[in-house]
Amino acid sequence: MKNIPTSFSIKDWNEDDRPREKLLAKGKQALSDAELIAILIGSGNREESAVALSQRILSSAENHLDVLGKLSVVDLIKFKGIGEAKAISIVAAMELGRRRRSSDVLKLKKITSSHSAFEVLQPIIGDLPHEEFWILYLDNQNKILQKTQLSKGGITGTLVDVRVLFKSALQIGAVAVILAHNHPSGTLKPSNADKNITTKIRTAGESLDIKILDHLIITERAYFSFADEGLL
């Protein structure tokens, strides 16, 4: 009796269906998201090819790479045919993509609006499952001197040490800062705690002649600006 393969390996496919060969022949842009993921995992399972398995994984992530990037190794190994090594490959590829996006955005050195600050910060905290508070330290031309994570918290909040914030500002010679934190819930409405910490930081900054230009609440695709809304 002929042995049944345990998985559909890409090397066993017809040449026209092989994503690796397709990439070499036609370029990376010619491949679908599923085909690119199939190259990462190499093989599927008894019932489906690597591309079919990749399509199923993408479908579970709403066919959106940002959603796929949020899946953990534990999430991915729930799919038949995805072991720990394949899951790690997918997670690593998603993280490299996120870092590349962040690196490209940071070519923008000067902050000219709330949107330009959002473009710098969204790749860093926009899709995190927990809350983080970040600071952009700026010079007198609104160029970024440094970006720093001030604190990291849970799903609903994070603590902010105002002394640490301004100690760093004085050390690097910043004359202005932009505050930012994410809301994992996706809501853009500032809480009372958000308003209170903004007021506290603004008051402290006035005594040191360090201006608070804005405080952004960031979600995956949007933001709320305290400055734009007249709350500073």
Rank of each mutant, 00 (worst) to 15 (best):
D16S: 13
D16Q: 12
D16I: 13
D16P: 00
D17W: 03
D17Y: 02
R18T: 00
P19G: 08
P19C: 09
P19K: 14
R20G: 15
R20W: 09
R20K: 13
R20A: 15
E21I: 07
E21R: 15
E21N: 11
E21M: 08
E21G: 04
E21H: 10
K22W: 00
K22M: 07
K22F: 00
L23Y: 02
L23C: 02
L24Q: 06
L24M: 02
A25W: 05
A25P: 05
A25I: 07
A25F: 01
K26H: 11
K26A: 12
K26N: 10
G27L: 14
G27M: 09
G27R: 11
G27V: 14
G27E: 06
K28G: 15
K28D: 13
K28E: 15
K28M: 15
K28R: 15
Q29I: 00
Q29L: 03
Q29E: 05
Q29K: 01
A30M: 04
A30C: 03
A30G: 00
S32L: 14
S32Y: 06
D33L: 03
A34R: 08
E35Q: 09
E35N: 01
E35T: 01
E35D: 05
L36W: 03
L36R: 04
I37A: 07
I37N: 01
A38N: 01
A38Q: 01
A38Y: 10
I39L: 03
I39P: 08
I39V: 06
I39K: 06
I39M: 14
L40G: 10
L40D: 02
I41D: 08
I41K: 08
G42L: 14
G42A: 14
S43I: 10
G44T: 05
G44R: 04
G44M: 12
N45Q: 11
N45T: 08
N45R: 09
N45P: 01
R46F: 05
R46K: 13
R46W: 04
R46S: 12
R46P: 02
E48H: 11
E48Y: 08
E48I: 14
S49C: 03
S49D: 02
A50V: 02
A50F: 02
A50G: 10
A50C: 01
V51Q: 13
A52F: 10
L53K: 00
L53E: 02
S54L: 10
S54C: 06
Q55E: 15
R56I: 01
R56Q: 11
R56Y: 04
I57Y: 06
I57W: 09
L58I: 00
L58E: 03
S59I: 04
S59V: 00
S60F: 08
S60W: 05
S60Q: 09
A61W: 07
A61D: 08
E62C: 15
N63L: 10
N63P: 03
N63M: 05
H64E: 13
H64L: 04
H64V: 11
H64M: 07
H64I: 14
H64R: 07
D66R: 07
D66P: 05
D66W: 07
V67T: 05
L68M: 04
L68S: 04
L68C: 01
G69N: 10
L71S: 14
L71H: 13
S72F: 03
V73K: 08
V73W: 01
V74R: 10
V74K: 14
D75S: 13
D75R: 12
L76G: 02
L76V: 11
I77D: 01
I77S: 04
I77H: 02
K80P: 06
K80C: 07
G81L: 15
G81S: 14
G81A: 15
G81D: 12
